[in-house]
Nucleic acid binder design. Structure first.
Lengths: 279, 279
DNA sequence: CGCAGACTTGATTAACGTCAACAATTGTGG
DNA sequence: CCACAATTGTTGACGTTAATCAAGTCTGCG
């Protein structure tokens, strides 16, 4: 206990000095702004949905020096094979990670919503095995791995929180794999829609049964491993059976129970702290 | 540094006492034996393939109190929904993790070879979202989460090593997802075989181009998301094109370059410390 | 208004699943 | 060592799902 306090106070001084001194990385000129106190809000909220933080930990996390950058839609942020020296959290907007096969096909591995840290892996796995790009315009908070390392050295429970977060991402991938491997196209789509709605609810982006889902059919095709034409037909089927209403970028779930049944959806793999009601 | 040493020596006493005192968990009567010094060898070797350990860390890991248990083939070890209080490493044999859909279909999410810790997730994610079962007869080393927690508190770099390991498992899932979503059946099989050969090489189970692969076609069907009949036809095709020889449980890769090309395989996602030559 | 991107539709075809029977292999008890 | 059962692998015929191709239509937007 004693030990921890010594290390922490030293940590605070160090970070303070470093974040003021450090030069900006080369490619971050124009769109850059400095962190405001509230900027990591979505990340903190997200972490708290899966882990309980002490005031001190919450504060330390909020004090982490970050650089906020804005991106347009459909931009690549990191690419397969990069060796990033910083990680980022999404503050606003939708992003996706993906892999490209040598045949030129793209598999979308995950959609990322505000509060997610899509490349937390790079903190330990220096070579990225996937790329990350924006879907819509996004606001991202970047943090140097070094700063994160110092933060975690001081607050080991935060290591656990972040580790836990990467494990949940793993659980989401597993559910996605089962979805890809075992379900016919329409159940696959239904399952995916259920997941998105629940995840958006957690961060307050799906208050009722409605949410903004700025995902084109072509993108869904790459995510769900089917052709764009088939995505279209499957969506029509879900509309015809009155499970969803989807117009423009707005999804309304008309029949939550029916949709979960169609997609065989059970939200427990999302490991939410309180069994998040979704309908 | 000073601090670390104090904590470590206390850790040693504690663990020493606890492992002698602790009663065995209820369901572990018969097949149980106590740990020998060498029992965690495969785990240590595996970790060293992805992370460099100090002598002290290696020793501490080997000293972790474990209970070794043997299982027959095709046994369930943990099931979807369990809340295990211990994790285990595979010392010998093949295992697999899987999910069962409500339609009764099984998706195999990963094959586990000696040195793997299939349920390391349960250390932080108390509810298992997948089951683990043996493929062949297996020897497993179980360790209480509590013991592991104490070890990691003392050697924070081991936390990093294990975190890194779960991240690599994540990378393997991602590659598997791309495989499921984007590749036609025969490329999918080829990619999978490449992965298995490389992973077995790491732990010394594929010395030349040959290895023991005790996986039935029905199991492959569940792993690769195709019917058992189609697995059979795809394997015949790979044999006909002289890429592999597969007879009984023995796989020989006849044309490594050809197989990697057929499966679009690039081993970098396995994040081996030295770019492990595979052919 | 015109253009680009997204969505929709129909016709055709390829990939793959299902069913059912059978052959080969492995394991087991006598 | 043999006979037998059980599991695994193989084959063919046939049906279904979903991909591909190609031609639209709609929508927002400068």
């Amino acid at each position: 206990m004693f030990v921890l306090m010594i290390r922490c106070s030293r940590y605070r001084e160090t970070i303070g000095r470093r974040s003021r001194d450090r030069a900006l990385p080369p490619n971050m000129g124009a769109a850059l702004s400095t962190s405001s106190d509230a900027s990591l809000g979505p990340l903190v909220r997200k972490l708290e949905s899966i882990f309980s933080l002490s005031d001190e930990e919450r504060q330390a996390l909020s004090d982490l020096p970050v650089q906020v950058k804005e991106f347009a839609g459909d931009q690549i942020i990191m690419r397969q094979g990069d060796r990033p020296s910083r990680s980022f959290a999404i503050l606003e907007g939708f992003a996706a990670s993906f892999q490209i096969t040598t045949e030129g096909k793209r598999q979308i591995l995950a959609f990322h919503v505000p509060g997610d840290m899509p490349d937390l892996h790079s903190f330990h796995l220096h070579l990225l095995d996937y790329g990350v790009g924006t879907i819509t315009a996004c606001k991202m908070a970047f943090t140097q791995h070094q700063d994160l390392r110092e933060l975690l050295a001081c607050f080991p429970r935060l290591t656990d929180a972040l580790w836990r977060k990467t494990l949940i991402d793993g659980a989401i991938s597993r559910a996605w794999m089962t979805n890809l491997g075992q379900r016919p196209a329409s159940a696959r789509m239904a399952h995916h829609l259920c997941e998105m709605v629940v995840r958006l609810k957690v961060v307050g982006l799906a208050p009722d049964h409605t949410c903004d889902l700025p995902i084109t059919q072509a993108v869904w095709a790459d995510a769900l491993g089917m052709s764009q034409v088939h995505v279209n037909r499957v969506l029509q089927e879900l509309r015809k059976t009155k499970l969803i209403h989807l117009k423009g970028r707005t999804l309304t779930v008309l029949d939550w129970v029916g949709l979960t049944r169609a997609g065989e959806f059970d939200p427990s793999y999302l490991h939410l702290r309180d069994g998040q009601p979704a309908g």
